[in-house]
């Protein structure tokens, strides 16, 4: 692309420390995600999801998006996974290995995912082969910067989002409220 890269960039054969760290954490994240979607033990799937989401938080840190990294830890690792675990318990998910965790269309799913992965990786690689991110200079996602942009330029979407969250909260309460006896919907 046009923005790319002053000629000082070293290329793939001499990666920087940040790149090596990103690669290693990325491998852990990807491995945890794969285990999370393939394991037969439902609770373990949720726990491996914690590893994957935490790895993504580290990736955000490496990309200098600090605020989003901590939001990721707070919301995903802190609350979404807890909600999922509660859901698993409330639906009486089996604790041990459950042989029917995968449905019958597993081969089709594998084929679709492999095809999508091949296509996406090829396109992305072809498009961004010669593009470098400049990570030097002040952090681009510090709380300072994020707060300023969020409350200076993105106030209206932010408020709309809080209305959406309120609606979701009310909806969840209404859905999960126990009906009185004899009344069925």
């Amino acid at each position: 692309m046009i923005l790319a890269a002053p000629p000082t960039h070293p290329g793939f054969l001499s990666p920087t420390g940040v790149e090596i760290a990103f690669l290693l954490v990325g491998l852990v994240t990807l491995g945890a995600a794969v285990v999370s979607v393939t394991t037969k033990q439902l609770v373990h799937a949720a726990l491996w999801l914690v590893v994957a989401l935490g790895g993504l938080a580290v990736e955000y840190l490496l990309l200098t998006a600090e605020f989003i990294a901590w939001v990721q830890v707070l919301i995903y690792v802190g609350s979404v996974v807890v909600l999922l675990l509660f859901g698993l318990m409330l639906t009486k998910a089996p604790i041990g290995r459950s042989p029917d965790a995968d449905s019958g269309n597993r081969p089709v799913a594998l084929a679709v995912a492999a095809a999508a992965a091949a296509a996406l990786v090829w396109v992305v690689w072809d498009a961004f082969r010669k593009t470098w991110i400049e990570l030097d200079g002040p952090a681009q996602g510090s709380t300072d910067v994020t707060g300023e942009t969020l409350f200076r330029h993105w106030v209206l979407p932010f408020e709309a989002l809080s209305v959406l969250l309120l609606a979701a909260l009310v909806g969840a309460i209404v859905l999960s409220r126990k009906k009185p006896e004899g009344e069925r919907d």
């Binding site: 940040v18 790149e19 990325g26 990736e59």
Partner: peptide, 24 residues
């Protein structure tokens, strides 16, 4: 950092999630 690292990682994670949605 090379932009291909996060882009490829994101593509692969998306496909892992796609597999999970279809197969679980």
């Amino acid at each position: 950092m090379h932009l291909a690292y996060p882009a490829v990682l994101a593509a692969l994670l998306f496909c892992v999630g796609l597999y999970g949605v279809l197969a679980r």
